Simulated scan of single mutants.
Amino acid sequence: MIDHSIKGKTVLIAGGAKNLGGLIARDLAGEGAKAIAVHYNTSATKPAADETVAAIKAAGSDAFAFQADLTTAGTVEKLFTEAKAAMGGIDIAINTVGKVLKKPIVEISEAEYDDATAVNSKSAFFFIKEAGKHLNDNGKICNVVTSLLGAFTPFYAAYAGTKAPVEHFTRAASKEFGERGISVTAIGPGPMDTPFFYPAEGADAVAYHKTAAALSNFSRTGLTDIEDIVPFIRFLVSDGWWMTGQTILVNGGYTTK
């Protein structure tokens, strides 16, 4: 019988220094992960990464921080190679990297589109590729996308549109990696109460999002709280392994597909 629990497993989390990624790291350490590799993007995030590493170690797990810009294939490959060497293997790979852009289509520049594609699509593709090369058999891969994949709304074409390919990457990878027992999923939170959400939204939009979900009145903020997403990711990379090739929207009734 294959053990799909978190206990004793090694984990790589892209964007694992703070917010959702940081909470996932702390949670999996509390579940008994053997070691966790915490990726962060720039030197500005290093203090948060160091704090998360310290929290993981305090929970009894080994932890390592790695800085990398994941918008190039070579740096994604280096991240996996170094994390694998540090931990002796990788069982679980979770990618929380993303960048919101909210603008009318006619105002989006080529540079903005290319940047959104690099962060939201390209990095996810090569994250899945390297996970497929480096993960131990019976491993788990989970990418964070967005519940806007189920929305019929303006202004998010570049954001949701560059997250949308990850849904197909997930399906294809689940078929290609399934023979090794590796499950591949994507999870789409609703608008989350993190510092990434507010700069892209005006006051009216924030007020709308805080009331748009069916369960908004029962949320701490009215938005999707990161604490509500972590249990689903924990499930998908452990006992929920039989669910593969799927994109799951977890948003309190904000959108559906």
Score class of each variant (00 low, 15 high):
56 I>T: 01
167 E>C: 08
216 S>F: 14
200 A>L: 11
132 G>I: 07
174 S>T: 07
13 I>K: 07
255 T>C: 09
34 K>L: 14
36 I>F: 13
256 T>K: 06
115 D>P: 02
151 A>G: 04
12 L>M: 13
3 D>R: 02
195 P>M: 13
88 G>M: 13
69 D>A: 10
90 I>Y: 12
103 K>E: 15
237 V>T: 05
172 A>F: 11
99 K>M: 15
163 K>G: 01
152 F>V: 02
160 A>V: 00
178 G>S: 01
187 I>H: 03
8 G>E: 10
139 G>M: 06
218 F>H: 15
153 T>Y: 11
36 I>N: 08
22 G>E: 06
183 S>C: 01
57 K>T: 11
23 L>F: 08
61 S>W: 11
2 I>N: 04
227 E>N: 11
228 D>A: 08
210 K>L: 14
162 T>P: 03
198 Y>C: 00
91 D>L: 03
131 A>K: 04
104 P>R: 02
117 T>V: 15
233 I>W: 09
164 A>K: 00
113 Y>D: 00
233 I>Y: 11
246 Q>R: 04
10 T>D: 11
206 V>G: 04
257 K>L: 14
230 V>F: 13
84 K>C: 11
127 F>V: 03
216 S>H: 15
77 E>Q: 09
31 E>N: 14
20 L>E: 07
89 G>Y: 12
15 G>S: 06
255 T>A: 11
182 I>L: 08
237 V>W: 06
36 I>P: 03
154 P>N: 15
195 P>Q: 13
85 A>Y: 11
231 P>S: 03
133 K>E: 08
219 S>Q: 08
127 F>T: 06
243 M>Y: 08
94 I>F: 13
160 A>Y: 01
83 A>K: 04
29 A>W: 05
30 G>K: 09
18 K>E: 15
132 G>D: 07
244 T>N: 12
248 I>Q: 10
116 A>M: 14
129 K>G: 00
76 V>H: 05
32 G>V: 12
139 G>Y: 05
177 F>E: 02
11 V>K: 02
249 L>A: 13
8 G>C: 12
27 D>Q: 09
200 A>F: 11
179 E>H: 12
